[in-house]
């Protein structure tokens, strides 16, 4: 009871100046998060520098909920690398390993074939209808490092949106009621 009472009191005792200060500091937090994300995009050269593994197709290497750090360099794509690619007509990118590479001699264009370590066959069934190979423009980046479990936060929040709203609400309340 005490905590709720205090919270209500602190909301009542708010003054304009204080509200403004808090709004500004909240804005600072949001913008600095955005700046960090965009800076990571510039450094890694990938449009999404961090991805969460959603399926078990790369087990036991990557499990559902692991976080992968991506890097997109000019270096050519080689067999064995784990790449994140987009297929036309599919919204969610896929993280799989390259098993075949054919690189043209004249213009350096590549045809690659991928496969999930835990899948029985290659990925031709996942590609767009009639597509046999992935080209450079399908590939968003290659995985360079990973952090286990952390991605569960995002998975839970996307699958159970109610938790997301509770969390945002609680954080918002904390920001409003905190006095510095």
């Amino acid at each position: 009871m005490g905590m709720i009472g205090e919270t209500v009191d602190s909301i009542k005792s708010l003054q304009i100046r204080q509200v403004l200060t808090q709004a500004v500091s909240l804005g600072m937090i949001v913008t600095s998060a955005l700046i960090i994300w965009k800076a990571l995009m510039c450094i890694t050269g990938s449009e999404s520098p961090v991805v969460v593994v959603l399926s078990g197709s790369m087990e036991p290497g990557f499990k559902r909920g692991d976080i992968l750090f991506l890097h997109m360099s000019k270096e050519p794509i080689r067999a064995g690398e784990i790449v994140v690619f987009n297929v036309d007509g599919r919204e969610i990118p896929i993280v799989h390993r390259v098993i075949k590479v054919h690189e043209r001699g004249d213009n350096g264009e590549v045809d690659v074939l991928t496969k999930g370590d835990n899948n029985y066959g290659d990925d031709r069934l996942l590609y767009a209808h009639g597509q046999l190979w992935l080209q450079r423009h399908h590939i968003m980046g290659r995985a360079v490092g990973f952090l286990p479990y952390v991605g569960w936060v995002t998975i839970i929040m996307t699958e159970k949106p109610i938790i997301k709203y509770i969390l945002i609400g609680a954080l918002g309340l904390l920001v409003i009621t905190s006095k510095e």
């Binding site: 290497g61 050519p76 080689r78 067999a79 064995g80 390993r97 098993i99 075949k100 590479v101 054919h102 690189e103 043209r104 001699g105 350096g108 370590d117």
Partner: peptide, 19 residues
Amino acid sequence: FVFLTAEYVTPKHALNQIS
């Protein structure tokens, strides 16, 4: 993760890697 590839060069392709 260990894998064996056959790698070769053809007139058209500067590199072919086949797992």
